[in-house]
Amino acid sequence: MSPLCVLGIPKTLCNVTTTPVYVESQGCKSAGPVNITSCSGACGTSSFFSAEMSSLQHTCSCCQELATSEQRIQLSCPDNTEITYTYTHIDACGCIKTECSAPGNGATTSPASSKPRRRKR
């Protein structure tokens, strides 16, 4: 994927990334590093004023898994036995539309449900 430039800072679009790590479970360890996958990168998020709705509208999306598969590896134990370890491998990532958080309180709001608030005096 090609980088996306936002305010002069290069951003990588949402994609699968791979990190080699040694896997350990129940005192047993992989013989070598295992390529563990994750999703990372930029997705579209914006806020704009809608004259029609007479409020700010928000569009949010998150970089997350689109397809996964189960992978099995053998882990070697100190007593010269092996165990099978199963983990989730990410096959594809993409931008998924999600709810946006309201500033300050962490509550989620839907763009269509924004209502003006009145102050009590």
Rank of each mutant, 00 (worst) to 15 (best):
G27W: 14
F49H: 12
R117W: 14
T19S: 02
K29P: 08
S38C: 15
K29A: 13
P116A: 13
Q64A: 05
N105H: 06
C100L: 09
I90Y: 01
Q64V: 09
C43N: 00
I83W: 12
T88D: 07
C63V: 12
A51Q: 07
C62N: 13
T37R: 03
S30G: 02
R117C: 14
D91L: 12
A31R: 06
A107S: 10
T17Q: 14
S114I: 07
A42F: 10
T81D: 01
Q71C: 06
A67H: 09
P111E: 05
L56V: 00
A51L: 14
V16I: 04
I96N: 08
N105D: 11
S38T: 14
T68S: 05
T108N: 06
V16C: 03
N105T: 03
T108A: 08
Q64D: 07
T98R: 05
C28W: 15
T45G: 11
C100S: 05
N80Q: 06
K29L: 13
L66H: 06
E52S: 00
G41T: 02
S101G: 00
C28A: 11
S38M: 13
T98Q: 02
K97T: 02
A112L: 09
T86Y: 06
Q57P: 01
Q57T: 01
G106P: 02
G41I: 01
V16F: 02
T37W: 10
V21W: 12
S61W: 07
T45S: 05
S40Y: 15
P103N: 06
D79S: 10
A51W: 15
A31T: 06
A31F: 10
Q74W: 15
S40D: 15
T108V: 10
T98C: 01
Q64I: 10
E70M: 12
C62W: 09
D79F: 14
S40E: 14
T17S: 13
H89Q: 09
T18M: 15
T19P: 02
N35C: 13
E82H: 15
I73K: 02
H58G: 04
T98H: 03
K115T: 00
S54I: 10
L56H: 04
Y22C: 10
Y22S: 11
E70P: 01
S38E: 15
P111Y: 02
T98W: 06
Q71G: 05
P78T: 02
I96G: 01
V16M: 00
S40V: 13
Q64E: 09
I90T: 11
C95W: 08
I83Y: 15
A31N: 06
L66A: 06
D79A: 13
K97S: 08
A102Y: 15
G41L: 01
T59K: 03
N80L: 09
Y85H: 12
S61P: 00
A107N: 11
T84H: 03
K97D: 05
S25K: 07
I73R: 05
T37K: 08
C77D: 11
G94L: 00
T84P: 00
T45A: 11
Q71F: 09
S54K: 15
T88W: 13
I96F: 04
C77L: 14
T86S: 07
T68E: 08
D91T: 09
K97F: 13
S50F: 07
T109P: 10
L56E: 00
I83A: 05
A51G: 09
F48Q: 02
V16H: 09
S61K: 03
P111K: 00
A92Y: 09
F48G: 06
I90S: 02
C43L: 01
T98S: 05
S110T: 10
A102W: 14
A92R: 11
S46P: 10
C60I: 08
